[in-house]
Design a protein around this nucleic acid. Sequence first.
DNA 1: AATTGTGAACCTCTTCACAGCT
DNA 2: AGCTGTGAAGAGGTTCACAATT
Lengths: 207, 207
Amino acid sequence: MKKISGSTVTRLSQYYRILNDLIENNVETVSSSEIAQINSITAAQVRKDLSFFGSFGKRGLGYNTRELRNTIAGILGLHKKWNVALVGFGNIGRALLLYDEFRKQGFLFQAIFEVDENKIGRRVHGVDIVHVKEAPQILFSKEIEIVIIAVPAKNAQGIIDFFVGLGIKAFLNFATTSIHVPKDVIVKNENMSIELEALTYFLTNKK
Amino acid sequence: MKKISGSTVTRLSQYYRILNDLIENNVETVSSSEIAQINSITAAQVRKDLSFFGSFGKRGLGYNTRELRNTIAGILGLHKKWNVALVGFGNIGRALLLYDEFRKQGFLFQAIFEVDENKIGRRVHGVDIVHVKEAPQILFSKEIEIVIIAVPAKNAQGIIDFFVGLGIKAFLNFATTSIHVPKDVIVKNENMSIELEALTYFLTNKK
DNA sequence: AATTGTGAACCTCTTCACAGCT
DNA sequence: AGCTGTGAAGAGGTTCACAATT
């Protein structure tokens, strides 16, 4: 398959959400320019993004919302449930566990890993908090493919190395630090203070 | 000033963190290639990013860590404290209030806005939860310039419109929905499920 | 000898514009 | 007539490569 840019993948997620909204409102057909307008991008961008994967529209008519939604779900891998583990049950970890959007999109928290003995053994929202050293067995038995990192920055690289060693290929990282992984592993950084700093840059330099 | 890309601003934030680490470890000088290596980018990228703002290095020697850190702080506007308001005190809002990184970078939560009468009137970590309708006075008296949106997706556009009407120009938005604002307003989206979907795309389509 | 700062080359992503379908 | 799908053009971002400087 041709190399698809990260921006295209991000936009597919956005189209997917827009299509879900339209379907909920019983809209059956949508044009690239309507999707574009909702997203504040160009219609050509929408069509180009979709064209990497096939031809899903009807000329003169547009796209069937339900068909296109299902097609995008297939591309993004959202037609199945994904088993996820959380590492670190602090402020951020707790919020992520309770975050509705994840559940709604079919992400299932199957384990919470910690090292704090005060937290280990508790069961929160149906998920057991266990020691990180149990990861080898649990990742396997629960078929976990995605690990969310919500530990202090100084521990993040070590934790990720450990899980890479156990065969995990995909991480969502909330620690604000540079992470190095092998080429076949993907880390998506969720970097909240860096985004805030983009705002302070804007406020400081505007006009 | 020449137009600076968002990626450059993001990288400046990363350089800023790296420089802080180096300073903490008493490193006094650093080269573009050392910064680059930590960041997994090229040395030319580091130099080009900095060159948009001036010449801060010494040929043959590199950059003085403390000077460069302070220069970048100035560019990003991190030489001052920023007053921030949080809208929505649910899971995500609570986690953000407690998030250490924000405090460390000089972001001060000055108000929490809610509409839930059960939450209004409480004081959490030194910050009062008040009704959104009090925003006009509080934004002014507390000199708030940045608003963090942690409300349900369906309310996000309305809330943002309200705060734009009150003169706020910068938002960090945790609601997963398309937001439209005037050209002189910036919204940074912190979109956690979209990042997770980039992982499922990767896992689904790799190899 | 080492490393910066930068024009030019290169590459990638976005937009244009229109032929081709429905 | 209307809208898609896409090659080509355009814009923007990254890397190269080397003169300039310490």
